[in-house]
Design a protein around this nucleic acid. Structure first.
Lengths: 347, 347
DNA sequence: GACCAGTGAGAAATCGATTCCCTCGATCTG
DNA sequence: CAGATCGAGGGAATCGATTTCTCACTGGTC
């Protein structure tokens, strides 16, 4: 347990005052280059590295941002986390990640935890469009907050997401091109903004005059639900031409269940989904899915955080990115339309 | 941006000194109950909560432990993270998670980061049995370290893992019971202890006098490798009765590729794997896989950390848990043997 | 009635880095 | 050449909570 060197140690070794040592190391231009050299040398020799807490206590900054996601076992959120981490690496800041386990209470606790750790900013994928509001609103008083992917409107924070209406439209257009006329939707209950928008878009664009109950199934963003939904569809006599899923986690187990019951996909039913996660590459057939430009979204999120860090009272901003449908075999493959992209990224 | 209350504020509001306020809130028995009451009341009214950094600076503790995993897109590691988080929740501590992206350099940087953040302990799934040693060894001088799942022996830290020899033995026994006589192994190069142990166990237990090259394939723990390996097996004329995979991430894409080429699993080839992750539940057929008692392992890891926190110089301890094979359809289903367990946990 | 152990609580030191303020010497201006 | 200006660098305060260290006061004992 080697006791770590302090500024004083470095200062002493370099023959200067702690004040000068500190200035030298932070690149203050008013320090003689010769002194800087001596300080840096001493610092290197002692293996000095500043105490994070002392610095944070004094400067009120931590060069750390926090992120709260509903579940790290959803691959889409994992991709989002990795993208944010990458976007931060450029500016040499790090990420603290918390999992809210799809619970409003846990989410609130995690947000509090991070705020008390004085993160410089907070990226949150909120659990609920309504119930996440109080915690987010409170957090936004103390720190820069940006909601990611989903939004709890009333929280009044910045937001980065993608255009769900357009994504669903691309799905439907693609399916119509492939000759589909009857559509079902398997998604999540509209407690999150994404679920609500995708559902509404589907209803506006594809729902028939009379949509049978078992063609509009709303549950959760889980594989369990995908499986249960598949069962309900199979229990009914007639299958639609196509099924639009609200997320890959739903689609993969739905697909597996359908095929397990001998339904030909894409021959009899075509399936499209949302998120373009690595999961969709593991099924047979591979999933046609809506890809969101997560990397760009993450960079934008960091930019918004930085901006708000400087302008606390600026009006809220919303950045909405356009997604793109990636066509694979679950709707008959790329055919003459466009080439399917993306390799499995799972490790 | 509400400025947060300090001990002084609380003390003033309660009409006592900061010292007494601090003592009152930390449950020091030498404080008059009446004072305690007043302090707690004031504290509650002001919405006081101690500044994490000031406290950490003074006490040299953070009630936080750090965890470094090779990749959060591997579902097995995600399960490990969740288990550790859960084990910590009991004692009201939190987890900081870092991803080393399977890189020794990143791993070293992350470990440093966490050590400087004065985490009270560190749980690491090392990237390499050899190259992870220096960083771990250095970290262990400053903080309690436990290696999880894999071990870099020479680092000289505590360890929690499972018995890979026994796990592979269960696989082979099961396959033999099902009538298999020729076996192939698709795993990772033995740069990690788990990969090495599983490989050696396979060789000891199942390798034939002459194992064709394409029946002993070593790559990485990725889906890409599973797919590539499948291709190599298919290119050769003869298939084995059974394939043992070193991890589910390998097995799922292998399985998908085999089935895509018309190979009947489990009819022609049976497949067993390792990790029992949710991925294995999404394939058709579902994967027979070795389940490790991750929750128990995580609790043990936390116990070891706590123990070392108190006894810096105690000899290193290794806790090895016994895994259990979960039989599913990729080897012909549970049959009369035992019931398959586990539901998909993906969200 | 005087002395001592014991107890509760405040003043001040501490953790380590940063930064404001001030000094001292040097250069510049009139 | 005196006085003003500038700039490098040191002393000390600061961030907020905890933890000595100390002291005043209580009750008990001889």
């Amino acid at each position: 347990m080697g006791k770590k060197a302090t500024v004083r140690d470095v200062a002493a070794a370099a023959g200067v005052s702690p004040a000068t040592a500190s200035r030298a190391m932070s690149g203050d231009p008013s320090v003689n280059p010769e002194m800087v050299r001596r300080v840096l040398k001493a610092s290197a020799e002692l293996g000095y590295s500043a105490n994070v807490f002392a610095r944070a206590l004094r400067t009120q900054r931590t060069d750390t941002i926090g992120m709260v996601v509903p579940s790290i076992s959803n691959p889409y959120f994992v991709v989002a986390v990795e993208a944010v981490e990458k976007a931060l690496a450029d500016s040499d800041r790090s990420l603290i990640l918390c999992d809210s386990h799809d619970s409003v209470e846990t989410e609130s606790a995690r947000i509090d935890l991070l705020v008390h750790r004085m993160v410089d900013g907070l990226v949150v994928i909120p659990v609920s469009a309504e119930e996440s509001v109080p915690a987010l609103r409170a957090a936004a008083r103390d720190v820069a907050v940006v909601q990611f992917d989903r939004i709890a409107e009333a929280a009044g924070t910045d937001f980065v997401g993608s255009d769900n209406i357009d994504g669903v439209r691309q799905c439907i257009d693609h399916l119509r091109e492939r000759g589909c006329t009857t559509f079902a939707y398997i998604g999540a209950r509209p407690t999150t903004s994404t679920a609500a928008e995708r559902l509404r878009a589907f209803q506006d664009l594809a729902a028939q005059v009379h949509t049978p109950d078992h063609w509009l199934l709303l549950g959760e963003f889980t594989t369990d639900w995908g499986q249960a939904a598949a069962q309900r569809m199979l229990d009914a006599a007639v299958l639609p031409d196509a099924i639009v899923c609200g997320a890959d986690v739903i689609a993969v187990s739905l697909l597996t269940a359908l095929r397990g019951s001998g339904v030909d996909v894409p021959g009899v039913v075509k399936v499209v989904s949302y998120d373009d996660s690595n999961l969709g590459m593991l099924t047979v057939p591979r999933l046609t899915s809506v890809h969101q430009p997560v990397e760009s979204m993450a960079r934008e999120a960091v930019r918004l955080l930085d901006h708000r860090g400087r302008h606390r009272e600026a009006p809220n901003r919303k950045s909405v990115f356009t997604p793109e449908l990636v066509v694979r075999e679950s709707t008959g493959g790329s055919g003459a339309l466009r080439s399917s992209t993306g390799e499995a990224r799972l490790r």
